[in-house]
Amino acid sequence: MATAKQKNLVSFLQKIKPNGSSVTIFIPYFWLTLFFLLPFILIFFISLTQPVDFQQPPHTPIITSTENGLQLNLYFGNYQALTEDQIYILSIVNSVKIATISTLCCLLIGFPMAYGIARSPDRWRNTLLMMVILPFWTSFLIRVYAWIGILGKENGLLNGFLMWLGVIDQPLDILYSDLAVYIGIVYSYLPFMILPLYATLEKLDNTLLEAAADLGSKPTNTFFAITVPLTMPGIIAGCLLVFIPAVGEFVIPELLGDSSSPLIGQQVRSVFSYDWPMASTLAMMILLVLVVPIFIFQYLQNKQTVTK
């Protein structure tokens, strides 16, 4: 009997004994749980509480102990407030709109650039790529501030230049408008569009384009029938890399945008200073807005890998 038990024990231990692959898998899971899942759950629960002034943490506890044991206190008022106060919905809609248009602009500017780099002679390619990445060597904040200097109404470089040229006689009102936010976002996130596009365009087999031409396809048709479908993974990756951070962006609209119509990122930041639960609720809403495109992305990717 004892030997049988021992055998069982040994086989049990062998089953749970860590091996190379399980350890390797464990590390990222552990990381994601600790730094993504747990904070997410925390934020989610805080969004179900009410704010309390002069207290640490500044919200009502989720679990309280009473005579009847532990009690769960869930408050859904914040989500209700979202629907009642239009400003939140409007800023979410506005954020999504600005992020969408910026992403499309990035795609329109980034695709020709990535294409040009991918088709340039080998000796130029690394230099050109380096030039795309080069701005990252300067602080993001300084680069956004620089745009104030460029777009400003008084003493702005752009207005000064255009007036010197004589194109305009009144300075343009670009700074502190949505246009300035678009410029800032497109400028800041363009490299995130170019790099994944470049990666797929560079792998695109040139003989496929030649074959299309040989079969009678004009260059524009070849572009839409061959190049675009084959670089779709890069297009999707680039769009997500721009869209997701652009939705939550608050530095660029804060510095360059019109303060009367704050974006959702700015809302979260300002609400957080006095109302943690409401800020958490807004954070959950951003997540919801972002999760939808991720699911679409995953769906498209799966479809491609299945049918490819």
């Binding site: 087999d205 003989t207 496929l208 030649e210 074959a211 299309a212 031409a213 040989d214 079969l215 009678g216 396809s217 004009k218 260059p219 029938a225 061959i226 479908p229 084959l230 490819k308």
Partner: peptide, 27 residues
């Protein structure tokens, strides 16, 4: 090339990977 009365069979075949056999031929 797209107006020439020639067609080429490439050494690598250069089949369009995202199209079925039928669509490749119909292209």
């Amino acid at each position: 090339p797209y107006e020439r009365p020639t067609n080429m069979m490439f050494q690598s075949y250069a089949l369009f990977p995202h199209m079925t056999v039928e669509k490749n031929i119909a292209f």
